[in-house]
Design a protein around this nucleic acid. Structure first.
Lengths: 151, 151
DNA sequence: CATATTCCTACCGAGGGAGTAGGATTTATC
DNA sequence: GATAAATCCTACTCCCTCGGTAGGAATATG
């Protein structure tokens, strides 16, 4: 499994906040309740999003969280990357060009590198806005049965 | 991590056997040695490949393993699927249409489904032969720096 | 029969995922 | 200024899987 609950819940939170829009801060308990998730666990996940600059937060009474930018300005890739640390499908693909010592002679490395790129490319191409507007065509592409067939 | 050492080593074994061709059975110890991997661990991985019909095996002296088909007739997808069980990037994507109970209202499901399809599609498009011939263009696509640029 | 090999079952340690617990700090409102 | 409602912070626990080990039974060759 490449994406754990941490990343999945993080995305869920972002979607929830995106839907709530800009009318005030939304509290952690509200999010936990509306998504039916453990408040304590969600707290640790939101902390990552917050420290990563994805959210604005306000402490104290009537406090809570809201998106720092507009939904269209978040790619799914950056949200998952922040919470998961890496999205590489295998251990031998490191971030930022660091590579395993067998890399020079490894015949399967191009495969893993290609897979990594395909994943990254897909996730960079989709934004929070695509999710809240239900842009199935963009997410499912040719596999979308409810979209009109490609001509 | 979506693909563990199990799947990676399995692929390595398949590549090794593909390179050795059809001149006789190759023993486990030969494979372990040439790939510098633990023989005992490799044994458990080869067992999966063997039971899954990927290999022919011969017990006893001068025994060993060889590919059951030609390299071009193995997709990477089926090799990894056999050893890993699933290649779904998230837990909420099950195999064979089984789905989580929130599926009907889940706004992020199309994203995960799309990602799953992108991965599957990529891995189905590459064969063992592509790896042993070093078909970088197919594996890396537009990210291949040593391939001639697309027109 | 000796040897080289596959085959089978059982076991184990470490690490990470998933979640819990408790309290310190900050802020809005009465 | 007290109180309530919220974020923030640190630590802990349970449990499962990954990665690997161990030992021996079955089988084929010479």
């Amino acid at each position: 499994m490449m994406v754990s609950t941490k990343g999945r819940y993080a995305l869920t939170v972002m979607v929830d906040l995106a839907r709530k829009g800009e009318n005030g801060y939304v509290s952690l308990s509200d999010i936990a309740e509306s998504e039916n998730l453990s408040m304590k666990y969600l707290e640790s996940i939101i902390a990552i999003l917050n420290k990563g600059g994805m959210l604005k937060s306000l402490r104290g009474k009537n406090g809570g969280y809201m998106l720092a930018r507009e939904p269209k300005d978040y790619t799914i890739n950056e949200i998952l990357l922040l919470t998961e640390g890496t999205l590489a499908p295998v251990n031998c693909i490191m971030q930022e060009g660091v590579q395993c010592e067998k890399a020079a002679t490894c015949s399967t490395l191009p495969l893993w590198a290609g897979l990594d790129k395909v994943i990254e490319n897909y996730l960079k191409g989709i934004t929070l806005e695509d999710i809240i507007t239900g842009n199935r065509k963009k997410m499912l592409g040719e596999y979308c049965e409810s979209c009109e067939p490609a001509k």
